[in-house]
Simulated scan of single mutants.
Amino acid sequence: MARLSSFSVPDFHLPFGNSKHPQAARANAEATSWVLGHELVTAAAEEFSGIGVGHLAGRVSGEVPYERIVLLAEWMAWSFVLDDQHDHLIRAGDLAAWRPITDAITSYLETGRTGDHAPGRNPLVTGFVDLCDRILAGMSEGTAARYRAHVPLMLHSLDQEAGNRGSGGRQTVQEYVLMRRHSSQLLPMMDMVEAGLGIDLPQHVHDLPEYRAVVASAVDIISWGNDVFSLPKEHACGDTNNLVSLISSWENCSLPEAVRAVEGRIQIRIEQYLAEERSLFQAMDALPGTDAALRDAVTRCVRSYEDWIIGADLWQRYECTRYSDERFAAGLESAYTRPDLVSVA
């Protein structure tokens, strides 16, 4: 394994402005209380609060009403616990315990029931049910359908990550990029922001190749940047689900060299994103039935993706203790992780 002898997160030169909701700190406190109330976290609440989910939600939500920012922050909090719990099961060699949890979640998405076989009282499941009901209540039929599709893909990508860590093999960089678009957990959250902004784009717009390209580029930029921030932890615990680690392995270069390579890829991706934005609006203007209202809605969605790109970067640099925490950098589990969480019935 390549050595991480020196490391600093570069400036990715993101060409977007950003503002944060003035009540982001309050949203962070409410999301932390929600996690504690659902017993997803029972210790080290201050450390969990330091993740700053409310600050991230406040940076990526635009003009969304405050109650929707809190809901997004709560979903982010649940997602972090889900991710950390999955990591714990990988470390413990107990991934068999994961399947009933994900089966319950996907069953609820499909049928509104967690299923007779499911651990219906587990905090990960009860927390999801509480969030899912409130999330879907604020969504149009089309946005809800995308959310229902994105969550199982997100869960499946975690299974893929576990397989990569257990197989000893190497995925290609392109295979990783495609998986990372879902393991980033961004797409369900982007659905939530779209709904909170009151945007309801027809499916044929979402299906445009130019629109899909914009979304893919935005998610790639955010995900690859996060891989740089999270590199110390993932390297320390032998997790190769990281673009920097994969480039180092495939190109036989040092980790600092691979960080610079990822920085270069991000800069190229930003230029692609800006070009894809222009192509999208050209495609919209050529599309029969495009009126000013539809074009405005697409513009607002695109601006939201820009909020995500710059907001996630600023949050990681200045408002989140997760990536600077000594335990995290040493590859240890989070102090708030409940080793018994999956077994709770």
Rank of each mutant, 00 (worst) to 15 (best):
Ser33Lys: 14
Val342Ser: 00
Asp313Asn: 14
Tyr336Pro: 00
Glu326Leu: 10
Arg148Lys: 15
Ala195Cys: 13
Ile105Cys: 09
Ala43Asn: 14
Val219Ala: 15
Arg146Leu: 15
Ser279His: 06
Phe281Asn: 10
Phe12Arg: 06
Ile270Leu: 07
Gly163Lys: 11
Ala73Tyr: 06
Arg181Val: 01
Glu251Cys: 04
Asn164Lys: 04
Gln185Ile: 15
Ser230Ala: 13
Val53Lys: 04
Ala292His: 03
Val298Gly: 05
Ser304Glu: 03
Gly196His: 05
Asn252Leu: 09
Arg317Ile: 01
Ala24Phe: 07
Arg113Lys: 10
Val214Thr: 13
Leu131Tyr: 13
Asp11Val: 10
Leu72Ile: 12
Leu136Gln: 12
Ser140Trp: 02
Leu246Gln: 11
Pro209Gly: 02
Leu208Gln: 08
Asp285Cys: 06
Arg338Glu: 10
Thr337Pro: 06
Ala57His: 08
Leu95Cys: 10
Asp94Cys: 06
Asp313Val: 03
Arg146Thr: 12
Val262Glu: 09
Tyr305Cys: 14
Gly238Ile: 06
Val193Asp: 03
Met1Cys: 09
Trp250Val: 13
Asp296His: 12
Met190Gly: 01
Asn226Thr: 07
Val9Tyr: 01
Leu332Tyr: 07
Pro100Gly: 04
Asp220Ala: 03
Ala97Thr: 09
Ala57Ser: 15
Met284Lys: 04
Ser5Gln: 09
Ala286Trp: 11
Trp75Gly: 02
Ile310Gly: 08
Pro209Glu: 01
Trp224Glu: 02
Ser249Arg: 11
Ile270Gln: 07
Gly166Met: 15
Val262Arg: 01
Tyr305Asp: 08
Glu30Val: 08
Met179Arg: 08
Gly17Cys: 06
Ile135Phe: 03
Glu263Leu: 13
Met284Asp: 01
Leu208Lys: 09
Trp250Glu: 15
Asp340Asn: 09
Leu287Tyr: 03
Glu63Phe: 11
Gly225Glu: 04
Glu333Gln: 13
Arg91Asn: 08
Cys237Glu: 12
Ala293Phe: 00
Leu197Glu: 05
Tyr176Arg: 04
Asn164Arg: 12
Ile105Gly: 08
Asn18Ala: 14
Leu231His: 02
Val177Ala: 05
Arg26Trp: 03
Ser107Gln: 09
Phe328Arg: 10
Asp191Ile: 00
Asp191Arg: 05
Arg260Cys: 02
Leu153Ala: 13
Ser343Tyr: 03
Asp285Gln: 12
Gly54His: 06
Leu246Asp: 09
Met76Arg: 03
Leu231Ile: 03
Phe328Cys: 10
Gly52Trp: 10
Pro123His: 00
Pro188Trp: 07
Arg260Phe: 03
Leu287His: 04
Arg113Gln: 15
